[in-house]
Design a protein around this nucleic acid. Sequence first.
DNA 1: TTTGAATTGTAACTTTTGTTACTGTCAATT
DNA 2: AATTGACAGTAACAAAAGTTACAATTCAAA
Lengths: 210, 210
Amino acid sequence: MLTDLKENFTNIFEDALIEEINEVGTLKEVKEGEKLIEIGDYVRSMPLLISGAIKILREDDDGDELLLYFLERGDTCAMTLTCCLGQTKSEIRAIAELDTTLIMIPIQKMEEWTGKYKSWRNFVFQSYHERLTEMLETIDSIAFYNMDERLVKYLQNKKKVTKDSLINSTHQEIAYELHTSRVVVSRLLKKLESMGKIELYRNSIKIVSL
Amino acid sequence: MLTDLKENFTNIFEDALIEEINEVGTLKEVKEGEKLIEIGDYVRSMPLLISGAIKILREDDDGDELLLYFLERGDTCAMTLTCCLGQTKSEIRAIAELDTTLIMIPIQKMEEWTGKYKSWRNFVFQSYHERLTEMLETIDSIAFYNMDERLVKYLQNKKKVTKDSLINSTHQEIAYELHTSRVVVSRLLKKLESMGKIELYRNSIKIVSL
DNA sequence: TTTGAATTGTAACTTTTGTTACTGTCAATT
DNA sequence: AATTGACAGTAACAAAAGTTACAATTCAAA
């Protein structure tokens, strides 16, 4: 774990802090599709992402979902941060988008470190900033763009996160994450295909030029 | 200013911190409608809200707006926090919704206090949490609700913030903040009126029962 | 008092999105 | 090989939201 830590956080955290994380943190591996946090859960530890990606989802009253954003290497979950401190329940669901490696840090350390390490404070503030920014982008997408544009953004984002221009999703899965219906997604994907921007296969979509 | 501080923050901040705020902070009064921050501005000081309310708006490429949330008594601007620390430009616009009193704190103190005062750290984290929660609610509204429901939420929220069941807005102003068209707002308001939930006047709307 | 701008109401229409229904295809399993 | 269920394509329709156009009203300024 120390190697993972040094590789990913050496320019971010002081050596003494890396030491401490190494002592109290536990390594966790999750498989693609595995659920990390459910809405309403109490959060008892804070994740640092070493590799992979985690998708953060919001749910409405009918149980329908909306993809908020992805966490990637070097990220942490800003929602978790405040849930830890405030002892409140999770407002979101977290699911591994890829096979993912995390370091879990017990929440007791959170408060201690924010007083003790400047690098930790900066990291936490930076995380908040990034998350707020991502939330703003999500709001932009929903409020200012039509579904066809949102779909394009979704595909681009997915490609970036998975580092793969072949996206292994069904139309139904995409519809869930964009909070629309399968028929609408199929319709718009077909239009993108006829424009030569993507190629459609069963269970996957090849991004040609988006 | 000391009185304002003690009245509003005495249970939140340590006495020593209140002292410091009193020394370095400056009192600022803004009139309703006055702009506090524009998108792209660099932020050089952090506001603590003593009284009044500030609306936070997001803008799209065409210059159209969307209301994100209100800041009220005891709040601070989470976007400002990170802008200060990260030296990045503002992503949002802030306009006084009511006549408002603020204490402005120079950003240099930010970092110093996060190391020095536990109560300050808690306040900052709490602020982030509240802002993230408000952003989630905004996302819920846009993503999961239709315009008629969003309009009702808007009116309820406005009533709560202004503490006045008579809302002094034109249909056009409401349309801007909900990012829709005036005709749509007029249509939906008329429907609410015919249901007996509101009364419509020129330049104002009376909330009867929502 | 007249003018003109801002505000509101409303009809008619278009576009976007969502829904229902049915079809064919693919792939795993028996 | 036959069965089954998940997946995708598409038509037809419905609902929600956006647009255009115009009329009526109010109110302040000329």
